[in-house]
Computed example of a mutant assay.
Amino acid sequence: MFNSPLSSGVVGKALKNQIIDVNCIDIRLFTDDQHKSVDDYPFGGGGGMILKPEPIFKAVDHLKQKSALKETDPIILLSPQGRKLNQDQVEILATNERLVLICGRYDGVDERVVKHLVTDEISIGDYVISGGELAAMVLVDCLTRLQENALGSAESIKDDSHTSGLLQFPQFTRPSVFREWKVPDILLSGNHEEIKKYREVESIKRTLQRRPDLFHGVDIN
């Protein structure tokens, strides 16, 4: 599942240029039974299967023994019950040299993993997907973009939606007139100071229209 996103785009280039390193571990390698079972039925009944604690703990123990993983390195469970990921959190996580991402699966993970191994739970949104693998890919992509030399232009990050706490201003490219729709004159003026002001205003307007909740805690002069 990870092969395609790890071999293309920004992440693929970052791996090729050794800007980042991603090590995928199959927890089935850390099972003891002949069927390589990583899940079981929940105590107390109910539908679905629960990821067992043993292979997850053993996999992390293996990392600590065989790699430079430190006790202080974050161990993150991708889970719909975690705190919702945002750009501020991504920027904090990006300062870590190493992260361990545990992909939740099936109907959940044994609570002992959450209480005694994981240091943080993260959700990519208020919806349910088949497993934490997709969420892990999202987080890896977010983190990779913030690494030095990962993007062609570091300037492009500054104007991204959510980087400043607001949504990005509307963007246009050639042709200046498409059908009857014309690019705003200010963007064709060459007046960089006025363009900057225009974009700041448009960013505020777009955020107010689409995501007014983002204004909480944002300082707007």
Rank of each mutant, 00 (worst) to 15 (best):
M1E: 09
S4I: 13
S4E: 13
L6P: 12
L6W: 13
S7V: 05
S7L: 04
S8P: 14
G12H: 02
N17Y: 08
I19T: 01
I20W: 03
V22R: 11
C24Y: 10
I25W: 07
I25F: 09
I25P: 14
D26N: 15
D26L: 08
L29D: 15
F30K: 04
D32V: 10
D33G: 08
S37G: 09
P42S: 05
P42K: 01
F43K: 15
F43R: 13
F43L: 13
F43G: 11
G48H: 03
K52E: 00
E54C: 00
F57P: 01
A59E: 05
D61Y: 06
K64A: 12
A68C: 10
K70Y: 05
D73V: 10
I75K: 14
I75F: 07
I76N: 09
L78M: 14
N86Q: 09
A94E: 03
A94R: 01
T95P: 05
T95E: 12
E97P: 07
C103F: 01
D107A: 11
G108N: 05
D110A: 00
D110I: 03
R112G: 11
V113M: 02
V114K: 15
K115I: 03
K115P: 11
V118Y: 06
V118M: 06
E121F: 03
S123N: 00
V128D: 00
S130V: 06
E133S: 08
A135E: 05
L139Y: 09
L139D: 06
L139H: 08
D141I: 04
C142L: 02
L143S: 11
R145C: 01
R145K: 03
R145E: 06
Q147L: 00
N149Q: 14
G152A: 05
I157H: 13
D159L: 05
S161E: 15
H162S: 14
H162W: 13
H162K: 12
T163R: 12
G165T: 03
L167A: 12
L167M: 12
Q168E: 15
F169E: 11
P170G: 06
F172D: 03
R174F: 00
W181V: 08
K182R: 14
D185C: 02
I186Q: 00
L187K: 01
L187G: 04
S189V: 07
G190Q: 03
E194D: 09
E194C: 03
K197P: 06
E200H: 02
V201W: 07
V201I: 10
S203L: 01
I204T: 08
I204C: 07
T207C: 04
R210V: 13
R211P: 11
L214E: 13
G217R: 03
D219W: 01
I220M: 00
I220R: 02
